[in-house]
Each structure stands twice: as structure tokens, then as C-alpha cells.
């Protein structure tokens, strides 16, 4: 899988690149508008991460360019601008998702995975991890063909964990993922503990492996035993 990161802050694109590398995602970077345009013109990507504020141009222009060239890449806008107008304009110009800076790399990764899943949808849409099968469409989870009864939050959590396989996830990253728009107001992230505990119990009771590891002082990690 190959993606293009259009971002003028090299350190941010480098962090993304490093984080995604272990998930088999190949990242190319473009620090400015012109470079981005030439890369888009020459290659096809699975996904484009787009910063709106570039030193030599407007990110929206890149969206227009993609549209005019009938490119079908999924685009996630990563921007420091946070208001309804820019968000709506981004979606109108063909962006698929919008993530406000600062964000967690884990969040970016699962959003990208979800986007690529949607784009590459071919009949079935399930995530398989050993004995665990998650059907995105019907929102059902089976372990060794036994259906699990998960709450919406638990399902969300499971997808977040599997998506970030082998990555240490901080409590705040999980809490912010689970609480969506409300995240900015939460000052206590302990509520995720209950969700983790319940999910863990449901998975192991159905005969699944104990993949959720607690990392002392930091958070959790989904790890193949």
C-alpha cells in the first residue's frame, strides 16, 4: 500500500512515515504544493494525507486538481484549521475525512484503514485477525464462528486495537477515539478501563486469544501471542 503525505512540517510527515512503516504502508512525502502536484500527476496512491496550509499554495487547489484529473485517491485532510466552513469546503471538494491537528497517529492510521476499506470494497468487508472476524458491514464479531455480543463502544475499541496491531496505544488516544467530538472536553480518561476489561473478557470467554496487553503507565497494546 502506498500513500502520499502532503505536509510542510517534515517532522510530522516523518513521524507518520515511521509509524505507518511497520504496518506495511509505504509513505511518500511532498513538502510543498508544486511537488505534491507533480507527484500526483506521475503516480497513483491508495490514499493522500493533505495539509491545507502549504507554503506555496492552498491545499484546496490540490483537491480540485485531483477532481479534474478524475483521480480516485481517498483524501484525508490533516489541518490545524478547525471550523465548520473549511471542513465543509473540504468535503465538497472531494475529501473523504478531516482530522484536526494535533492528532494521534493511531487515530490517523485507523481512519486511513477505514477509508481504504471503503474505497476497495469488493463484496465482502471483513477484518480477520486469527480466530476473530469482524464484519464491518453488519457490525458483527465472531470468534471461532461464535457470535460475540459487543456494545458499539467495544466494537469501536476492537477495531481501533486491531488496526493498530503491535502498537502501544495511550489511554488518551483510545479515549479520544471512543468519545469523538466530546474528546476535547474530557479531562479523565479512566473510563476506557471498563471497556478494555469487558472486551477482553468477552473475547477470552468465546475462546479467543488474550491479545490485549497492558503496558504499565502508558496504555494498551494489541499483540499476537
Amino acid at each position: 500500500m502506498k500513500i502520499l503525505i502532503i505536509e510542510d512540517e517534515r517532522e510530522i510527515s516523518q513521524s507518520i512515515k515511521d509509524y505507518f512503516k511497520t504496518n506495511g504502508i509505504q509513505c511518500e512525502t511532498a513538502e510543498n504544493y508544486n511537488l505534491a502536484l507533480s507527484k500526483i500527476g506521475s503516480y497513483d496512491y491508495d490514499c493522500i494525507l493533505l495539509d491545507l496550509m502549504l507554503p506555496d499554495g492552498d491545499g484546496f487547489e490540490i483537491l480540485k486538481e485531483l477532481k479534474s484529473k478524475n483521480k480516485t485517491e481517498g483524501v484525508i485532510i490533516i489541518s490545524a484549521k478547525e471550523n465548520l466552513e473549511t471542513r465543509l469546503e473540504g468535503f465538497n471538494l472531494g475529501a473523504d475525512d478531516y482530522l484536526t491537528k494535533p492528532f494521534h497517529l493511531a487515530e490517523l492510521l485507523v481512519r486511513m484503514q477505514a477509508l481504504i476499506r471503503r474505497k476497495n470494497f469488493k463484496g465482502s468487508n471483513s477484518i480477520i485477525f486469527n480466530e476473530i472476524v469482524v464484519d464491518i458491514f453488519s457490525k458483527t464479531v465472531t470468534v471461532n464462528d461464535t457470535k460475540l455480543d459487543l456494545t458499539k463502544k467495544e466494537l469501536d475499541l476492537l477495531l481501533f486495537l486491531i488496526g493498530n496491531e503491535n502498537k502501544v496505544l495511550s489511554k488518551s488516544a483510545i479515549a479520544e477515539h471512543l468519545s469523538g467530538d466530546m474528546a476535547d472536553m474530557l479531562d479523565n480518561h479512566d473510563f476506557i478501563y471498563a471497556h478494555i476489561k469487558n472486551l477482553k473478557k468477552k473475547l477470552t470467554q468465546a475462546g479467543g486469544g488474550d491479545y490485549i496487553k497492558t503496558i504499565y503507565g502508558l496504555g494498551y497494546k494489541w499483540e499476537n501471542e
Binding site: 517532522e11 513521524s15 509509524y19 491537528k101 494535533p102 497517529l105 503496558i215 496504555g219
Partner: peptide
């Protein structure tokens, strides 16, 4: 927001390293 984003992504990267208990 930009330095905060840098801060956040670097911490996310740091989390992935093999840390001692103290560092964690």
C-alpha cells in the same frame, strides 16, 4: 497547534520504543 501536533506525534512514536518501566 503545529508544535502541539509535533509534540503529540513524537510522543506517539516514543511510545512504540522498547521502554524501561521508568521511561514508560
Amino acid at each position: 497547534q503545529t508544535p502541539l501536533a509535533l509534540f503529540q506525534t513524537k510522543i506517539d512514536t516514543l511510545l512504540q520504543l522498547d521502554l524501561t518501566r521508568e521511561q514508560s
